[in-house]
């Protein structure tokens, strides 16, 4: 079943087409790698899907519904969640609080309940805490012990974990991971790959699109890769195919004949 389908999706900043004519189909439970050289429009593509930028062309169909023009929080309500390239955590809040914020879509109490219906709020918070801790424990028991630590004091790998926990806390149908291995050393990257495998195992129904520069990660987790260059889609297929494709190689390395 097709979960997300973009049709001729594009955005222009003035005269510059940052993303143009991108058609991507994501099936339920599938992992897709989105790769391409720096500045090829990968993050812009994520920003289009999550509503941070409003597309100037094309459409985004999610479960058959057009998402174009919806603000980010409406898109999150529909079941799309993301992480950011330079982890954008709530740095003043603790590990647990960050994950709890990720759960706000599952919570129903409002400010009047906070003031007048203490019991309901306590009940809901307790449920959320148990759920959040179970989720954090699934990735790392050490993080559970550090649950009251402010996230700005955590090492990079743990920050990424918290961000992933926050993103999947609302049980999204589509998860967008923007370069999860950015700023990690090789050991941390291998741990990250284990974490990603764990997500896959836990949420089999969830679709994932991952932007990554580390090809080890892509090879390990993505069945299908989409390659962007200068904002356009230049290739779609398996990782093996992509690594032998001439156009993809040219995009990354430049064309030998021309430069010579």
């Amino acid at each position: 079943m097709i979960l997300l389908e973009t049709e001729r999706l594009g955005i222009r900043f003035g005269g510059l087409a940052a993303v143009w004519d991108v058609d991507i189909q994501v099936k339920t439970g599938e992992t897709i790698g989105l790769i391409g050289p720096n500045g090829s429009g990968k993050t812009t593509f994520f920003n289009l899907i999550t509503g941070i930028y409003i597309p100037t062309e094309g459409s985004i169909l999610f479960k058959g519904k057009n998402l174009v023009g919806l603000p980010p929080h409406k898109i999150a309500e529909n079941g799309i969640s993301r992480t950011f390239q330079n982890s954008r955590l709530f740095s003043g809040l603790s590990v647990l609080d960050n994950v709890l914020v990720g759960m706000n879509l599952l919570q129903t109490t409002n400010i009047f309940d906070s003031v007048f219906r203490r019991g309901r709020v306590k009940n809901e918070t307790s449920h959320s805490i148990d759920e959040a801790l179970t989720l954090i424990e699934y990735f790392s028991i050490d993080l559970v012990r550090q649950r009251y630590q402010k996230v700005k004091d955590l090492p990079q790998a743990d920050k990424k974990r918290v961000e992933i926990c926050r993103a999947i806390a609302s049980r999204p149908k589509l998860l967008l991971l923007d370069e999860p291995s950015a700023g990690m050393n090789p050991e941390e990257t291998s741990e990250l790959m284990k974490d990603l495998a764990k997500i896959r195992e836990k949420e089999r129904e969830m679709s994932i699109i991952v932007i990554e520069h580390d090809m080890r990660v892509i090879k390990e987790i993505a069945r299908r890769v989409v390659v962007l260059d200068y904002g356009g889609k230049i290739f779609e297929g398996t990782f093996e195919e992509a690594s032998h494709n001439k156009v993809v190689k040219e995009a990354y390395l430049g064309s030998g004949e021309k430069s010579a």
Partner: peptide, 14 residues
């Protein structure tokens, strides 16, 4: 507090 720390990330959390 979440909005105080990062408005865009909060917005993307719904």
């Amino acid at each position: 507090n979440a909005i105080r720390d990062d408005e865009i990330a909060a917005n993307c959390q719904g």
